[in-house]
Design a protein around this nucleic acid. Structure first.
Lengths: 197, 197
DNA sequence: CCGGAAATTTACAGTCTGTGTAATTTCAAA
DNA sequence: TTTGAAATTACACAGACTGTAAATTTCCGG
């Protein structure tokens, strides 16, 4: 029997993905139920039906479980920016891309993950790294719209400010327990950005 | 024998500070010599002439040694901003404050510490948290210049963008191994900020 | 100067994350 | 059915960090 069209490997890889997914879900649920630090690796492994050692075959650390849930984000950001028409100033372009992404940030699950990521010093720190990755993704995508090398510094600044505004938006939104939609915070922050600078 | 004027405690506190300082220096030197991860707590404690357990009486973690070397920064930032005259736009004000601080960032030691902070994923993450603290400090200081509550969102954005520009400046400066002075990068970044937004 | 309170230091035992290694099991493909 | 790589596990271990209780030192009032 040959491969199907889109299955370069097949059976084995699929099972691998399933196991990884199962661990990620089990872990996340335990984090939500008992807190991040109170959840031991052994508990996660046991609840996932694997040995503690095998856990590290799938994830490089306990923290990595949370990263796995966010791995799609940089790509989503890239795609959203590339989908925008380049007849806007870079800052507006990113703003509009973010507005379209706001829905994904707002899902029940994203909020739960966000809460965990704010619960310990260690996670708060590594969560910042996530924003750095987004900044990188934004810069790369913008560089495709405007490939001129001499604009690089400008685009870098736009990426920094955009992601920063996004972060402030999410913070403000989280502080108000999600009364108003995230999108309205994003609009406010980006307009403050233009007004004030 | 009475206290001197500015010594509310005295002998004991002084010795405490000395010990802490000694540990911090010992640790930093070991990090520089052997790398952060390769340096065990036990090694630091032994080289400092204390037991491993006592280390945790002075620092809450190994990482904390590095934070200790940067503890003065937020205050320095606050002071520099408060020292600026408020007849400038907030962004310019922060820019000028940063330019005056650039010297401190550029010391031999600061560069060494910065290199260590870039050497592992964990430290890179926690280093981002440092920028968050700076952002907070900037915002607080700006709020003293402009206490009107309704300007808060604007000041927040200025703080975010300023610290972000500072971060990009330090990065760019580090990438070029310190050929040009840090100050010139800061000027570039801040002007890009105004041009592009 | 003295005795107790408080701060400092230490040893010891233990938890938890993460790694190295080697043995065993599973399974896809030849 | 054999074979080799991938997956899984046990075991042993390092290293950061915590809890606890016991020493030791320093301080402070009487």
């Amino acid at each position: 029997m040959e491969n199907e069209s889109t299955a370069p490997e097949g059976w084995r890889e699929q099972k691998r993905r399933e196991t990884r997914q199962r661990i990620a879900e089990t872990g996340l649920n335990l984090f939500i139920a008992n807190g991040y630090e109170a959840t031991t690796l052994e508990a996660i492994a046991a609840a996932s039906g694997i040995s503690a050692r095998t856990f590290f075959y799938y994830f490089k650390s306990k923290e990595d479980i949370l990263l796995a849930w966010q791995q799609g984000l940089p790509d989503a950001v890239r795609a959203a920016i590339l989908a925008e028409s380049p007849d806007q100033r870079p800052l507006h372009l990113v703003r509009n891309a973010f507005l379209k992404l706001a829905v994904q940030f707002s899902s029940e699950q994203a909020v739960a993950i966000d809460r965990i990521l704010r619960s310990t010093e260690q996670l708060r720190a590594s969560n910042q790294a996530k924003f750095l990755l987004m900044e990188k993704a934004v810069l790369e995508a913008l560089s495709e719209h405007w490939p001129q090398a001499r604009r690089r510094k400008a685009l870098q600044v736009v990426a920094m400010a955009s992601v920063g505004a996004m972060r402030l938006s999410v913070d403000a939104w989280g502080d108000e327990a999600g009364q108003k939609p995230l999108a309205s915070f994003i609009k406010q922050m980006f307009s403050a950005l233009e007004t004030e600078l």
